[in-house]
């Protein structure tokens, strides 16, 4: 009888401990994604093939993506990621783009027709404007991700050096 009680108690205790450990492990993985996400430049440009910096960070964390797919971050980001993950530094993969100086989008305002398509496309809410009224880019907020360029029906958005 004592044996049964002891085993039951033991099983209960171990169950609780395992449950706690599972929770702890999960939060560890979470914090790894967070750490990777911190090192990414947050342009949300999707050049890496993922819809934003965080999804890419998650993909790096579960090792389904390489660390050299972020052109805006460039070599310095690859180095920082390699150091965090204890991996070898590798050159930037040119398939995803090449490193370029920081850019900002500029709307040629007299050509803008006020269609609001770029406003919807901007991942970081850096474009202000209203329907049928001129739009403009808040330079300080623009990350130069280029996502506003393709939707523009009148091609009035240029990318210039920041």
């Amino acid at each position: 009888m004592t044996g049964v009680i002891v085993i039951t108690l033991l099983a209960l205790l171990l169950g609780i401990a395992l449950g706690a450990a599972a929770g702890r492990l999960q939060s560890d993985e979470e914090s790894l994604v967070d750490k990777i996400d911190q090192l990414l430049p947050q342009t949300q440009c999707a050049q890496c093939g993922f819809p934003g910096c965080r999804p890419y960070a998650a993909a790096i964390a579960d090792e389904s993506a390489e660390i050299n797919q972020c052109p805006p971050g460039g070599e310095s980001t690859v180095t920082a990621l390699a150091e965090l993950l204890n991996r070898k530094t590798i050159p930037l993969n040119p398939e995803f783009g090449v490193e370029s100086p920081p850019m900002v989008a500029v709307i040629r305002e007299h050509e803008c027709i006020g269609c609001t398509l770029c406003i919807k496309a901007c991942p970081v809410d850096a474009i202000v404007g209203a329907a049928k009224l001129m739009h403009t880019v808040i330079e300080d907020h623009c990350t130069g991700c280029e996502l506003c360029v393709p939707p523009c029906p009148v091609d009035c958005i240029d990318l210039g050096p920041a």
Binding site: L40, P41, Q42, T43, Q44, C122, V124, D125, A126, H141
Partner: peptide, 11 residues
Amino acid sequence: AALAKIRYEKH
């Protein structure tokens, strides 16, 4: 970058 992230999350 931190500010851009906050705006992106809101977006």
